[in-house]
Simulated assay, not measured.
Amino acid sequence: MKVAHLILAHAAPAQLSKLIGALEDKHAWFFVHIDRKADLDAFSFLQNRERITVIADRVDVGWGAYSIVEATIRGFKAAVDSGIDFGYVNLLSGTDYPLRAPSEIHDFFARNTGENFMEYYPVYHEWAEAIPRLTQYHFTNYKFPGKYLVQKWVNKLFPARRMPAGLEPVGRSQWMSLTMDAVRYLLQYLDEHPKVVRFFKHTWAPDEIVFQTILYNSPFRPSLVNDNLRYIDWSKGEPSPRVLTGEDLGRMLSSGKLFARKFDLSRFPEVIAALDRQMKDHQS
């Protein structure tokens, strides 16, 4: 089972190098998008590496903006254009890390061929806090003076937005593991539905909704598994998940997940070292 790991990174080149090293396998390829704001020289270790493709047309990624979706789309296209017959495209951030050895990860995907792993909670029934993302206009993706004042008045003067193309919105986590067929479908759908693209360009954090919604409203719905295979701790109730430490090790390893996020190698190197030892023990 060949796997394309699509990694979105913006900083911490040493940690990104560790992540790729932990996932390296004869059946693994890497497609890496580095935020356009980042100094590419700091990531020179990615150049001229077998099985590593750095996305050339980089996006200036903004938090909560459609630019995250654009970066992901460019990564999807790079995987498709490679001509390699991947079984899965696995979307990661540079602050993720595997909980299982590469051979176990590939075996898992081989056993579950055809299933697509992502979180897809119905917005209007199980994820109500996301409703304003869809009913209001958001100018997060744009850069012009006074954009939030304009956004405020647009939402006062214009009626609530409605989902385009009869789509039923679902989503939650941005991170997912998709079959190559699903990835091709997403790219084709977005090419053929410019109104859907325009809608999500005015949605806050569309990366948590757009891909999930398209697949949920497609022939791929029976293949969806409502599990993104990631251990993530949202216990603090903040916009970003808690940074994991050595104290989380037991919970991570017993979670049954394949990956976890997020980690900080500079602050808590011991937890990544412990995961490396665990994976090495499983491989020996």
Rank of each mutant, 00 (worst) to 15 (best):
M1Y: 07
V3K: 01
A4S: 14
A9T: 13
L16T: 03
A22M: 11
A22S: 13
K26F: 05
F31D: 09
V32K: 08
D35W: 10
F43V: 14
F45L: 13
Q47E: 07
E50D: 15
E50K: 15
R51D: 04
I52K: 08
I52T: 14
T53W: 09
V54R: 14
V54S: 12
I55S: 13
V59Y: 06
D60Y: 07
G62K: 15
W63Q: 03
T72D: 03
R74Y: 08
G75E: 09
A79I: 15
A79V: 13
A79C: 15
G87A: 10
V89L: 15
N90H: 09
N90K: 00
P102C: 05
S103R: 10
S103T: 08
F108K: 05
F109S: 06
G114Q: 09
N116W: 05
Y120M: 10
Y121I: 09
P122A: 13
W127H: 14
I131K: 15
P132H: 12
Q136G: 05
Q136I: 04
H138N: 11
N141M: 08
Y142D: 09
K143A: 15
G146K: 11
Y148Q: 13
L149K: 13
Q151W: 04
Q151K: 14
Q151M: 14
K156R: 14
A160I: 02
R162Q: 14
A165Y: 10
A165Q: 12
G171A: 04
R172M: 10
S173K: 06
S177T: 04
L178R: 05
T179D: 06
M180E: 12
D181Y: 00
A182N: 09
Q188P: 00
L190G: 09
D191H: 12
E192P: 05
H193F: 08
V196Y: 06
K201A: 10
H202Q: 15
W204E: 07
A205K: 12
P206M: 04
E208N: 11
V210W: 01
Q212K: 09
L215D: 07
L215G: 07
Y216V: 05
N217K: 03
R221I: 00
L224T: 06
L224S: 02
V225L: 00
N226G: 02
D227F: 01
D227E: 05
D227K: 02
N228A: 07
N228Q: 01
N228H: 07
D233V: 05
W234G: 09
S235T: 08
S240P: 00
R242H: 10
V243F: 08
L244Q: 07
D248T: 01
G250Y: 11
G250T: 15
G250V: 13
M252L: 14
L253E: 05
L253Q: 07
L253M: 07
S254V: 11
G256F: 04
A260W: 04
R267G: 00
R267T: 10
I272D: 03
K280L: 13
